[in-house]
Write a protein that binds this DNA or RNA. Structure first.
Lengths: 215, 215
DNA sequence: GTGTGATATTTTGTATGCAGAATTCATAGT
DNA sequence: ACTATGAATTCTGCATACAAAATATCACAC
């Protein structure tokens, strides 16, 4: 088996993102490079490289002389991010191979149907949701677009843990996923694309009340 | 006057991008960190930070142990980037304040009309084009989207110098800008948005022949 | 008690140092 | 001549060191 050989900065980035998913970091808090580097068991250099990458993705902010901090959350920004991802995923669907979409449509439907059945912890649900979207876009031939979507979604991870606790939205999320899948089974790409956009817009509305009001 | 105080990595990033516009770097060539740092008069640390940022924007590629290199150009990638920017700018227009758009429409028209008059060097033309698009999107209330557009366009700068030499495309570009501006003067946002998308698609087609065929 | 200014401490931003991987070059064998 | 092998070199990736900026501490005047 090929042993793992990739830059520390990437591993650090992923570790920080997964901690963000777990809600370990409060939005708006400063990062102390020395202590975080010590905690991760690495030096400040690759840590700073990871922080710079995350800042480029909008997860962090940087101020001259003041270092990095987790970007504060706001309803305005969340709305903006949802609008962007809705447009990008919709475009990705339009760029996808129609035959491939028909092929995966049943699997998408199956995944959407078993969605709310499992009473699982938050992180499992989120992973499930991500997998559904990943599979949906797996036929997109625009590689740059897929990278961009991944990057923008990283910026949304700050909002993930705010969803914890309430199950109601998930049922509607699953219903919307079913709707998209059914349209793909029918081969109606245009309507599926529209349903996907609606899914993001509705998901955004559902989240709004959970985000602290903008300052 | 406020003296300039911002991280070296940002200044380095901009310097590298402007050199890229001038065609100083051939696509696909490796970067030697030590010599480039010496040439810029900085150490490798902030240079590497800039390189990592640029890699995140798709300007550079990085391979473990092999450092950074300018990402090779390809028709496929250029098409992908144009599709993305077309969707993003179109979305930005949809997010814009209608009143503001009506306000700037005459200025956009004026700029588009004087476009091909000046027989100027390539870089002036490009700046002019960028300014037009910037003004067009100046009323967009989605700040994250504007940042994202800037970032994606940075990734397109590798293709800028390929445009040099031929003036024919510019006339058509100007005509399409006029079309967008006229539709905005009329207040027909939907059609303007569509015309903007068409502008990117057509611009893409015009560039295609100038990009080496994909390997 | 509050504000102000000098000083000490912390923390970032940048430079330098070092180990190991990748590449190059030379040499030997066929 | 061509390939293979190994030493020498170059370069990256990461760690450490240092200087300057920012922040905290404290004394003191009001």
């Amino acid at each position: 088996m090929p042993i793992e050989r990739r830059p520390l900065r990437e591993q650090i980035r992923e570790e920080l993102l997964s901690r963000l998913d777990r809600g370990d970091f409060a939005a708006g808090t400063d990062i102390n490079e020395a202590s975080l580097a010590a905690e991760l068991g690495v030096s400040r250099t690759p840590l700073r490289e990871a922080l710079i990458t995350l800042a480029g993705e909008g997860v962090l902010e940087s101020n001259q002389g003041r270092g990095f901090r987790f970007a504060p959350v706001s309803r305005k920004e969340f709305r903006e991010l949802c609008e962007i991802v809705a447009a990008l995923e919709s475009l990705a669907l339009d760029c996808s191979d129609a035959a491939h979409l028909r092929g995966i449509a049943p699997e998408l439907l199956r995944l959407a149907q078993e969605f709310p059945d499992r009473v699982a912890e938050q992180q499992v649900i989120e992973r499930h949701d991500d997998e559904w979207h990943d599979l949906l876009l797996s036929g997109c031939r625009n590689e740059r677009l897929l990278d961009l979507i991944t990057s923008v979604k990283a910026g949304m991870r700050r909002y993930a843990h705010l969803l914890a606790g309430d199950e109601t939205p998930l049922e509607r999320e699953a219903a919307e996923h079913r709707r998209v899948a059914e349209l793909l089974v029918d081969g109606d790409l245009a309507k599926a694309s529209q349903a996907l956009r609606d899914n993001w817009v509705n998901g955004m509305e559902r989240m709004m009340s959970r985000i602290p009001a903008d300052g």
